[in-house]
Design a protein around this nucleic acid. Structure first.
Lengths: 201, 201
DNA sequence: ATATAATCGGGGCGTGCGTTCCGGTTCCCA
DNA sequence: TGGGAACCGGAACGCACGCCCCGATTATAT
């Protein structure tokens, strides 16, 4: 990513890490609307220091969101490996939960703050590739209707995150997830294919 | 609501109506973020005039959102009367569409701008009463699973509006609505109730 | 240790927006 | 028709925020 032609000075590297860590937590807790001055104050540095490492607020958000996307990809891949049929569902619930605990991430995905994700073609591409992957696994396992596409999954994530910001986790889990799950299940109206009955639960 | 002990002066009443109409259209088209100065300019009045009739920006938004809620109630009731089984679905699609064409309304429902709806207990109550009503009709017609509650419908509206802001109307119509519809349909795994087969279409 | 350059930090600038103020204008009623 | 109150409009205030500047400070090489 960021080329370091010369190694950063020791204090500079430490401050950069502090800023990134604080911004990471703060944007997650309070959304992308937190002022840079506030980030700087909590990191114990001046605003100028923040802007030296991240020339604009958007670039700071980008660095964070790219990392979040990569984390999501890793977790989803691990879950899918453990249970291909449930991987997509676990991923959806997890992304919904992240929409509540990580307001900045949710803003970025839905495009509320900036066009963050659009400005991160690499991370976006990797993310969508992973979605297509776990979707395919679930479809092979017979737990998800075959006409679902990766872009539909992204749309559903946006909707689930909005709902999660509106309702508690348990509410969503008990009352909305069954609906989504039923809607994503393969249709059973004409059991011509007659696949093995859902062995999930 | 606003008590009018004395009738408004003629020019004042006209200006109030102009402001309300312009704000109505502008907030719908461009969201709740449009400055009051801009509303005033388009209405051909000064900013002071806007603030005389609506002491705060929030109060102006409230007046508009309350009216929108009432309109939605009327339309939904009419549609449900025409086709009880389809009323709830038509209502959901319509609210999703309003989430795109009326950004201010969507912000209000999801609580993004202010706590608008929470500050309108009357309109909110009427709205939720109507939701419960058309939900009951659809459940009696057998087109919606019986365990669905009115609050779930509101949650779904929030999610659908977020998805609609993210995808085009046709995308949502073709790819998301079938999923939601399947998820809301009564379960058919154990057809013990055996109601009259869906006479909707 | 000292010179030199990188880095720090917080005060400051420009902008945008909600809200208020007040001199001038317009309407209503006698 | 005239007087007084209600109303108008836009300039101005306060605040918040993104971003920049520059004297003071600190790290590194000799």
């Amino acid at each position: 990513m960021t080329e370091r032609s010369r190694p950063l000075r020791a204090d500079a590297a430490r401050n950069r890490a502090r800023v990134l860590q604080v911004a990471y937590d703060t944007f997650a807790t309070e959304g992308a609307g937190v002022p840079i001055d506030e980030i700087a104050r909590r990191a114990g540095v001046g605003a100028g220091t923040v802007y030296r490492h991240f020339p604009t607020k958007e670039s700071l958000l980008q660095a964070i969101v790219a990392d979040r996307l990569r984390q999501a990809v890793e977790r989803a891949r691990a879950q899918t490996a453990a249970d291909p049929g449930e991987g997509l569902y676990a991923f959806l619930w997890q992304m919904a939960e992240q929409g509540a605990s990580d307001l900045g991430f949710s803003d970025a995905l839905a495009g509320n703050a900036f066009d963050l994700v659009a400005a991160l073609p690499d991370a976006e591409h990797e993310f969508m590739g992973m979605v297509a992957e776990i979707l395919d696994q679930a479809q092979r396992a017979g737990t998800v209707r075959p006409d679902l596409e990766a872009s539909d999954v992204k749309t559903l994530i946006v909707g689930l995150q909005a709902m999660r910001r509106f309702r508690s986790e348990s509410d969503l889990m008990l009352r909305v997830y069954p609906i989504i799950r039923a809607g994503l299940a393969p249709p059973r109206t004409s059991p011509e294919t007659g696949p093995d009955p859902a062995a999930t639960d």
